[in-house]
Design a protein around this nucleic acid. Sequence first.
DNA 1: CCCGGCACTGAAAACGGTTTCAAATGCGCT
DNA 2: AGCGCATTTGAAACCGTTTTCAGTGCCGGG
Lengths: 348, 348
Amino acid sequence: MSAADKKLETPARVTIREIAAEARVSIATVSRVLNHPEQVATKTRETVKAVIERNHFVMDGMATALASRRSRTIGLIIPTITNSIYASSTQAIQQAAQEQGYSVLLGVSEFSAREEAALIRRLMERRVEGLILTGAERSQRIYETLARNRVPFILTWQQADEPPHPSVAFDNRQAAAMAMRHLIELGHRRIGLICGRSATNDRALARREAYEEEMRALGVPQREWLIFERDFEFVEGRTAMHRMLEARFRPTAVFCANDIQAIGALAECRDRGLAVPEEMSIVGFDDLPISQYLSPQLTSIRVPASQMGFLAAEKLIGWIEDKAQPESALLPVSLIRRGSSGPPAKDR
Amino acid sequence: MSAADKKLETPARVTIREIAAEARVSIATVSRVLNHPEQVATKTRETVKAVIERNHFVMDGMATALASRRSRTIGLIIPTITNSIYASSTQAIQQAAQEQGYSVLLGVSEFSAREEAALIRRLMERRVEGLILTGAERSQRIYETLARNRVPFILTWQQADEPPHPSVAFDNRQAAAMAMRHLIELGHRRIGLICGRSATNDRALARREAYEEEMRALGVPQREWLIFERDFEFVEGRTAMHRMLEARFRPTAVFCANDIQAIGALAECRDRGLAVPEEMSIVGFDDLPISQYLSPQLTSIRVPASQMGFLAAEKLIGWIEDKAQPESALLPVSLIRRGSSGPPAKDR
DNA sequence: CCCGGCACTGAAAACGGTTTCAAATGCGCT
DNA sequence: AGCGCATTTGAAACCGTTTTCAGTGCCGGG
């Protein structure tokens, strides 16, 4: 076969075998050059390396993973990619994983339990060595499958107590209570709530429960028309606020259980000429980076998204390598007081 | 071995072989139940399925990919996950891929060429069947490796002409020119620029070149102190604007080549008590969802992020399955006029 | 009754690596 | 020159699937 022919033929993907042939060594030696170079004589090693370079050889990770029974990959499932709070934790997880030589396989569930179950299965098929999940509420069957297949996992954003699964989270209830007490201390009594769908989102549920508990403690009767469960979109916060302002007795403050909705609510107030915080206080949750670039700046609950992600990844990898299930961690949150909250009009 | 013993022993991961043994069929049959159920007798199929269910069997995707020579995975590399404009295209790509039965492997390069090269290699090792890359500028060697290993790829966010690679993009130059002409038509002459690092980001470069060209066409001498190249953070836009306002001759308008920096710039004006657009016009680029929730709302260039992602994924998968390299596509952009831009003070 | 064809199943050869084990080689010493 | 030991190397057995190819059994038609 001439050189020209060689150029024309489909040069199937380069394998370790062709490298071995061209370098006149066995495939075992090539493998060693790749994985344990110190075990190979310098001369041989250089020859093989040169052949590898020359042929643009790229190892087949599938074959490697299959043979070594290690994928060096962890899976991460988040509910949405468009809320930048998850971007923060995702980035931290990527970084922590990378530092330890792991890759991250990302799945986005769009807040659907069905979708999440399918994603978990897909990630297991890809032989992730561990999983980082968002929230604690999911079907028992999923936990069984995970256990049966020995896939370690860490829960984030919400701790799991009854069946105690390892988690790295913060106390959503306490955090939401912190936001509520801030408003109550400012003198608010009629407080509205805008939050996510508590039926499909245990974080939203915990925050709503905290809201209800604080209102109860305040002796204020429950008003269903002060509570809005919406999706995580700016516009949803806006329309919720719109409805809220049409109520017979407007609230003097609204607790938005996430900054996305808070931003929409804030915009609605502005467009209606309602002064914030003079006529309406708004407290958000998450403290997104953008929140201090709004006007007024948003009072919010700062959650340790990056730290949580980093720690979760570290603990998961530790678990994978040591085989010892890690302790759960509960991280602190803090209230960031900014311009969007103040005393109600009557107190001024 | 008693049932109790069975429970105690480490139940290594379930494989197709154990399923076959328990169902008293060959592994070929189990494989068929999984992949071509219609080829298996109903009775056999049900038996096998039951055994699979009972044992929480999860296929080993590595082995599958190895044996079938198909990973049904595409790779996506974006520069950052925290700028939500990439979240939009990423989401669209995920969706398009999922519709066609493909998974997406995500890599984040953090605007580093080194990191990007490493990621491309990692994705190739994972045997992605194709790649969606961001921007067109990268070392020749990478394109060679891609070609040598027959990995189809599509460029996004920036077209590639000289070595014509398939791309789904928009014209960054023309888009930036559109923003500039808007300001010029409003009557601005002294216009500042805040953009990304043109040395490592060909989109930033194209936009900067358009800015310079428009300024030249205007007959306005180049002023290096009106140009700021910064990273993609709110605070970078803010400090750039801060510096800009200290200049001897303040610009009457600033073109921010991305909304992230525009938001920071806007906040700086607000904090300094500089009225926008009366005393300072700001035009952004990307038209992030948040941009219309600011006050004033941000005038910006709307880019077809979702459409671009969706189309890129479709074309890539078409290429993978038909083996025919697709045509490049150039998508239109539009100027969204909102409150942050207006005529300069002197014209009022 | 025999035969062709169909529906179904299993044995075995890949796929591209890792790893174990043993053989070969090289080296310093006596 | 011969020995022992450490260093290198290669052969071969996996890893968990898919897929090809060759049965096997059964049915209907001639």
